[in-house]
Amino acid sequence: MAGRSALLVENVSKNFGGLIAVDAMTFEIEEHEVLGLIGPNGSGKTTMMNLVSGALKLNSGRIRLFGGDISGLAANRIARHGVARTFQLVRMLPSMTARENVFAGGVFGHRRLWGRDLEENAEAMLEKVGLGGAGSTPVSAMTYIDQKRLELARALVSDPKLLLLDEWLAGLNPSELRIGIDLINSLRGEGRTIIVVEHVMDAIRSLCDRCVVMNSGAKIAEGTPQEVLADEEVIRAYLGDHHA
């Protein structure tokens, strides 16, 4: 492994009352790598993402971003360190235009763009996600896939050091899915460092360099998509005992 460590999660746990949502998770992602975080529903993937992005505070363990400790920082501080994310249920800024939605990602992120820089970058990102020329559209008039694209542009405009995509492909129809996968693939081609939480197995196979599989809050497997999807414990976790 040649790359620099982008994110190092060490022994991280989170519990809600008596429920242990994330249980001593440890994994690492290198710069320019696309890591898939997969597992059955309720296995703690989204909680894990929320711990990395700072939406939730961890109970124990440590998270390092490019060597610097970010565990327990507030979400806005983590965003300033260069972590950008999308949301499981798409979140728009409804009273703003598409362009302003993208601005929102760039002004306060770790690049802190403003003025002409901001406008040029935002326009470029809209172009990249396939929304070139749609900058003045109010978001309420946009289709679901366009909103998803816009959310991605908002995350990208800050030029994040780490991008978290939480089920970004969920809810797309087959042709939209194709577009979506191609889009993420192009980001991969740019050498971005990305963690994707995903249920769409096709996407995982074609996008991820490596996968971490979670079940009941703990890591049960790690490796290339082919390896983990053939792993007995992974199959058992997804399909139950009979199929193993």
Partner: peptide, 22 residues
């Protein structure tokens, strides 16, 4: 920036926080 931050907060505070706004 402060005014823009407040507009974002008024729209969706979660997005605001994750965009790096205190």
């Amino acid at each position: 920036r402060l005014g823009f931050a407040l507009r974002i907060i008024g729209n969706d505070e979660v997005v605001a926080v994750h965009s790096g706004i205190n």
